[in-house]
Amino acid sequence: MTDSELIVSIVAGNRSAFRELYDKYKSRVYNTAISYLQSVADAEEVTQDVFVEIFHSAAKFKGQSSVGTWVYRITVNKCLDYLRYRNRKKRMGFLASLFGESNELKVDAPHFEHPGVLLENKEKSTYLFQAIDKLPEQQKSAFILSQIEELPQKEVAEVMQLSQKAVESLIQRAKGNLRKELEKFYLERRK
């Protein structure tokens, strides 16, 4: 079945079509979520959210973009929502700790190791992820989709609903900011 046929079948309530779509896109959704959230557990949580959303909003899919682009768009939005929620929770935890409540302050693991990175690159990739974490949302999305997910810029533009030029500029700015952040890490390492 083509992607569009799968969507039509899902709308008709066909569970095996939903399974087929899941098998086709699970890896892309999960890996994108890992890059954003830098936590395997959170990435699994968001992957669930994405597929539940796909199931419920399949009827609203108008076919104006490809199914892949639509799936990536849902993934990016869910990841950004989850990051905002996590940051809010972190701030609340910090405030609670100031007032002496027992809620412990949960901070993300400082050195995230992506499970798919080659062994020889593990250490360097932890610095990259720490730097990515500091990027503003749009630069983060442009960088993750184009440099880690390796989507063509045209598709990144469709996912982010921006022009290709805007995406190009976001990627350049992201790389510039990452270099600045990495410079700090480099100097810290030398101390």
Binding site: Y30, A131, I148
Partner: peptide, 22 residues
């Protein structure tokens, strides 16, 4: 060093989610 860090995701394998996720 910065170039190496920026290129550290090259050649990475895709991670697979938990088989019971579906």
């Amino acid at each position: 060093w910065k170039e190496e860090v920026l290129g550290s995701m090259r050649g990475m394998k895709r991670a697979e989610p938990n088989p019971f996720l579906f």
